[in-house]
Simulated scan of single mutants.
Amino acid sequence: MYNVKIDGGALNAHDANIYGTHTFSKELITALTHYDKINSYTIYTQENTVLTTNGARMQKIWPKIGWMKMGIAIAELMSRNKQNIFLATNQSFPLYTSGSIIGFIHGLSFMQYPHLYPDSQKRMRQQISQLMHRARHIVVSSEKVKSALTHKYPQNKNIHTIPFGIPSAFIEKNKNYKRKNLVLFVGMNHPIKNITLLIRSFKLLITNPMYSTYKLILVGVGNTRVDYLGLSQQHVVLIPHANISLLKKLYNEAACLAVSSLYESFHFPTIEALSQGTPVVACAGAVIPEIAPYVHTSKHNPNDFCKSLQNCLTSTKHIDVQTLQTTFSWRTFAKKIVALYHA
């Protein structure tokens, strides 16, 4: 039996403003503690959470300053357990771990577009480099990320592609909602999300009388300023934060999800929308090969993205939700992670 320690720093007790790292940590921990009945689990957290962990031990580390490098390192030094494993869920790890490391790398947008991360790209590069050298295994969510890492670190033969699952809240489809003339965007207001391209494309779309009544719904952009580029506010709805219940409602009402990002390594909103039967239009850089068959793909320019929106709204691709659930399963993900404990 292994004693598995997990970085739960991305967990929080709030239902709104949920980011991908929180979703991943929550779903991973829930799946591991539900399906793995042999090994024991300790989750290091920064604050109290309401996560159901099926018998796992929650250990709050204080203070938040130096939480990862020092706080968890001290907890690891004090551990008397043998056969320990540390799951570095968010690309970083403490100065000391009492066992081997399995590291998770979520994306490389800061390498592809370093100018969009002026304050953090150097730190993130260092984190990736250190993790690649320290971890016994590296787990990524798509062949896209694995290919980039293999090119950057050709000596590493321990990179495993294991696609994430559909978040549990989106397994069941809500049939009480009806589709409306809504184009939905879900994500933060960061340059990598390329919201400007989406707004330019939407402005072109509504010049067509067939789509003149459509509205663009921007969800999760926080309280940051969004430049509408002259787009009338009657065509835009801004929702700074959305809890899971509201998000699921919006997926089920939207005519499509629009993903204008320059780069994505997985993108939970895409898989969430598809699980609800909602078609997706995405720029090529935002699509991973495992999801590409389900998505209307566009080039990174307003005219092409507008055409892709029109194609999506008039002739949607068939979404085989059952196959999607089989391909993107947290149960499968958890079983493959547990197998790495012994590899």
Results as ranks from 00 to 15, higher is better:
Y96C: 09
T97I: 10
T97D: 08
T97L: 10
S98F: 03
S100V: 09
S100E: 13
G103E: 01
G103V: 02
I105R: 00
I105K: 02
G107K: 00
G107I: 01
L108E: 02
S109Q: 10
M111I: 13
Y113W: 08
P114F: 03
P114A: 04
H115G: 11
Y117E: 06
Y117V: 03
P118W: 09
P118I: 04
P118A: 05
D119H: 15
D119M: 14
S120K: 14
S120C: 08
S120F: 11
Q121V: 14
M124N: 14
R125N: 15
R125A: 12
R125E: 12
Q130E: 09
M132K: 05
M132I: 02
H133Y: 08
A135Q: 00
R136I: 05
R136Q: 11
I138T: 07
V139H: 00
V139M: 02
V140F: 03
V140M: 03
V140L: 03
S142T: 09
K144S: 08
K144C: 03
V145H: 00
V145D: 02
S147A: 15
S147N: 13
A148Y: 10
A148D: 15
A148C: 05
L149M: 01
T150A: 12
T150V: 14
K152M: 13
Y153H: 04
Y153Q: 06
P154A: 11
Q155R: 12
N156E: 12
K157R: 12
K157P: 02
N158M: 06
I159N: 00
T161K: 07
P163L: 06
P163C: 06
G165N: 03
P167A: 01
A169S: 11
A169Y: 07
K173I: 13
K173H: 11
N174S: 11
N174V: 05
N174W: 00
K175R: 10
N176I: 09
Y177S: 05
K178T: 15
R179M: 10
N181R: 12
L182C: 01
L182E: 12
L182G: 00
V183S: 02
F185W: 08
F185R: 01
V186N: 00
V186H: 01
V186S: 03
G187A: 10
G187E: 05
M188E: 15
N189S: 10
N189E: 06
H190Y: 13
P191H: 07
P191L: 09
K193T: 09
N194K: 07
I195V: 12
L198G: 00
I199P: 02
F202K: 09
F202Y: 12
K203S: 15
K203T: 13
L204N: 15
L204C: 11
